[in-house]
Measured scan of single mutants.
Amino acid sequence: DETGKELVLVLYDYQEKSPREVTIKKGDILTLLNSTNKDWWKIEVNDRQGFVPAAYLKKLD
C-alpha cells in the first residue's frame, strides 16, 4: 500500500559508510520513511531501511 508514502529522487550516488546507512544511486526514486532530522533522512532501498544525507535527496510532489 503506497498511499501516503512520500517519494524522493536521488540526486547523487552515495555509498553507505555504516550499517545504519544504505547505498543509493543517482536517478533512483525511493520511499521516504522519515525526514524529521534535517541532515539525515531514513529511506527504503530494496527492502532495506537506512539513512542517507538529506542533501542527496529531493522530495517529489
Rank of each mutant, 00 (worst) to 15 (best):
Pro19Gln: 10
Lys25Gly: 05
Asp28Cys: 08
Leu7Trp: 14
Lys42Pro: 01
Leu30Asn: 07
Glu21Thr: 06
Tyr12Thr: 08
Val22Asp: 01
Glu2Ser: 14
Arg20His: 13
Asn34Ile: 08
Arg20Gly: 15
Glu44Tyr: 05
Thr31His: 12
Val22Cys: 09
Leu33Ile: 15
Tyr56Trp: 06
Asn46Arg: 12
Glu6Ala: 13
Lys25Arg: 13
Tyr14Glu: 00
Val45Leu: 09
Pro19Ser: 11
Arg20Met: 15
Lys25Phe: 12
Thr36Pro: 03
Leu60His: 06
Tyr12His: 14
Ala54Asn: 03
Pro19Gly: 08
Ile24Glu: 00
Val45Cys: 09
Glu16Asn: 06
Leu30Ser: 03
Val10Phe: 01
Lys58Met: 13
Asp28Leu: 12
Arg48Asp: 04
Lys59Cys: 05
Ser18Val: 05
Gln49Asp: 07
Thr31Glu: 11
Leu33Thr: 05
Lys42Ile: 11
Thr23Ala: 04
Arg48Thr: 07
Gly4Phe: 13
Arg48Glu: 05
Asp61Gly: 15
Asn37Ser: 10
Ser18Trp: 07
Ile24Lys: 00
Pro53Thr: 01
Lys59Phe: 07
Leu32Met: 04
Gly4Ala: 15
Asp28Lys: 05
Arg48Gln: 08
Asp47Glu: 13
Ala54Lys: 06
Phe51Asn: 03
Leu60Ser: 04
Ile43Asn: 00
Asp61Cys: 11
Glu44Ala: 09
Tyr12Gly: 10
Val52His: 01
Thr36Phe: 09
Leu9Asp: 01
Lys5Glu: 08
Lys38Thr: 12
Leu9Cys: 07
Pro53Cys: 03
Leu57Pro: 01
Glu21Ala: 05
Arg20Thr: 13
Lys25Trp: 12
Pro53Gly: 01
Asp1Gln: 15
Arg48Ser: 06
Glu16Gln: 11
Asp1Arg: 03
Pro19Met: 08
Gln49Pro: 05
Leu60Lys: 04
Trp41Thr: 02
Asp28His: 08
Trp41His: 03
Val8Gly: 02
Val52Gln: 00
Arg48Asn: 05
Pro19His: 10
Gly4Leu: 15
Gln15Lys: 13
Asp47His: 12
Lys26Trp: 03
Leu30Asp: 01
Glu44Arg: 10
Glu44Lys: 10
Pro53Leu: 03
Leu33Ala: 03
Glu21Cys: 04
Pro53Gln: 03
Ser35Glu: 11
Leu11Gly: 01
Asp39Asn: 12
Asp13Leu: 02
Leu11Trp: 03
Leu33Lys: 05
Asn46Gly: 14
Trp40Lys: 02
Glu2Asp: 11
Tyr56Cys: 12
Val22Met: 08
Ala55Thr: 13
Lys26Glu: 07
Ile29His: 05
Asp39Cys: 11
Tyr14Asn: 00
Asn37Glu: 14
Thr31Met: 13
Lys59Asp: 02
Lys38Asn: 11
Tyr56Arg: 04
Glu16Phe: 07
Arg48Trp: 08
Gln49Ser: 10
Lys42Phe: 15
Glu16His: 07
Thr36Ser: 14
Ala54Thr: 04
Glu2Gly: 15
Tyr14Pro: 01
Pro53Val: 02
Gly4Cys: 11
Gly4Met: 13
Asp61Pro: 12
Leu30Val: 15
Lys5Ala: 11
Val52Asp: 01
Pro53Ser: 02
Val52Arg: 01
Ser18Cys: 08
Glu21Gln: 11
Leu60Met: 08
Glu21Leu: 03
Lys58Trp: 11
Glu6Gln: 15
Glu2Ile: 14
Asp13Met: 03
Thr23Val: 04
Lys38Tyr: 08
Thr3Gln: 14
Ser35Ala: 14
Asp47Ile: 06
Leu9Trp: 06
Asn37Ile: 06
Asn46Tyr: 10
Val10Arg: 00
Gly27Glu: 02
Asp61Phe: 13
Ile43Asp: 00
Lys5Val: 12
Ser18Thr: 13
Leu30Met: 05
Asp28Val: 06
Val8Ser: 02
Trp41Tyr: 04
Val45Arg: 11
Lys26Ser: 08
Asp28Ala: 11
Lys59Leu: 11
Lys26Leu: 05
Gly27Leu: 02
Glu21Met: 04
Phe51Ala: 02
Gly50Leu: 06
Gln15Ala: 14
Leu7Ala: 06
Leu57Ile: 06
Tyr56Lys: 05
Tyr56Gln: 04
Ser35Val: 05
Ile29Tyr: 05
Glu16Ala: 15
Leu11Asn: 02
Ser35Tyr: 08
Gly27Phe: 04
Tyr14His: 04
Glu2Cys: 12
Val8Trp: 06
